[in-house]
Design a binder for these strands. Structure first.
Lengths: 191, 191
DNA sequence: CGCAATAGTCAACACTTGTTGGCCCACGCT
DNA sequence: AGCGTGGGCCAACAAGTGTTGACTATTGCG
């Protein structure tokens, strides 16, 4: 339909990516409703109608701007005891690498499509890891969910709400405190 | 100013509380931006202008609708080992009692005023508890923040994002898994 | 050069938002 | 009864939203 069959040869690519960058920034800072197409377009220094031309509508823009790959490393080669620490460290790096995850969380909280996308990421990226490492496969959804409560809670307080003492915590301390928690959720026997 | 010096004698009180109830529901379900005054007014079966009459503007309505008292019990009379369990149980009950906390979290994520209010609650209600129970008073902010990451993360996945496996978890299991975590964050020696 | 396709702009649309002011009606007092 | 106060509704405003279509400018190719 609105797809221009496979690739504009000219320099539209530059503005396309500029739009995506501006969109990520705005979605991360303001959430879905407050991140207006006009503001995004102004950040990208183009006309709002270009956004529509390239991405159809606001939902399409969001879908294109926020695509998440958690890049979870292969934890099966790690000693079982170090899985928790590796997870926490990896998540911290992912959150600080760019603002995509913040955007997704901010949007997911007030937008149905955003929440569903988070559920998708959980099911396709976190759950498989849990399946690999946790003892009883039948319990992996519950254990992955527990891990999600702790890791998303950290992201929420630290990167979204910016609760001062949570922001002030040095990375090493965060890891030292949370790693045993995640480790236990994944590998400990039932309490 | 818009304050009618201390009490309408007539039946305005009924509509006032109806507005607040509708507002709480809408803020909890939709967040700040999507919860429109018109929708709230329709839920309360009155005219949008009445909302303005009674609460000044949308911010005032939010302030009036969402006032949070965590009602944290006196934990100092509890055996130190049971503090974690008591906290988790209490928070679960608070979140399921009414939708105020959900509203606050949904709004806090995309609204500056909402985020500040959450910081206020943290400082005035959670921090004091941490000060009572954790060993080194200088560490209480960090430890309270850690507790916040776990408890808010639970609320986020279970009551806001509604991640299916987090919703499916029975209360007893949540407590069994999270209580040791909270207990450790509050009372364990530095890792 | 001339032509077609593409990148980009402008102005407008239909709608929703918070917010305001004027109006009517019902009640409670004297 | 009459009157005033205040609860409630209606209609409108100005601003901002996503979205659309027509128009211009620029580019590549023959």
């Amino acid at each position: 339909m609105t797809d221009n069959g496979g690739g504009g040869r000219r320099r539209s690519e530059a503005t396309r990516t500029a739009i995506l960058a501006a969109a990520r920034e705005r979605f991360a800072a303001d959430g879905y409703e407050k991140a207006t197409i006009r503001a995004i377009a102004k950040d990208a220094a183009i006309d709002p109608s270009m956004v529509m031309r390239y991405y159809g509508n606001k939902e399409g823009l969001f879908a294109a701007a926020v695509s998440v790959d958690l890049k979870l490393p292969d934890l099966s080669r790690l000693p079982r005891q170090e899985i928790g620490e590796a997870m926490v460290l990896h998540f911290l790096h992912m959150w600080e690498e760019n603002e995509v995850l913040t955007a997704l969380l901010r949007v997911g909280v007030t937008n149905q499509a955003g929440a569903e996308r988070m559920q998708g990421i959980f099911g396709e990226q976190l759950l498989p890891v849990a399946r690999l490492v946790c003892p009883d496969p039948e319990q992996s959804p519950a254990r992955a969910a527990l891990v999600a409560t702790q890791l998303l809670g950290l992201a929420l307080t630290r990167y979204v709400l910016r609760l001062p003492p949570a922001v002030a915590l040095p990375v090493e301390e965060v890891v030292a405190w949370l790693a045993p928690t995640v480790q236990r959720y994944l590998t400990a026997p039932n309490p």
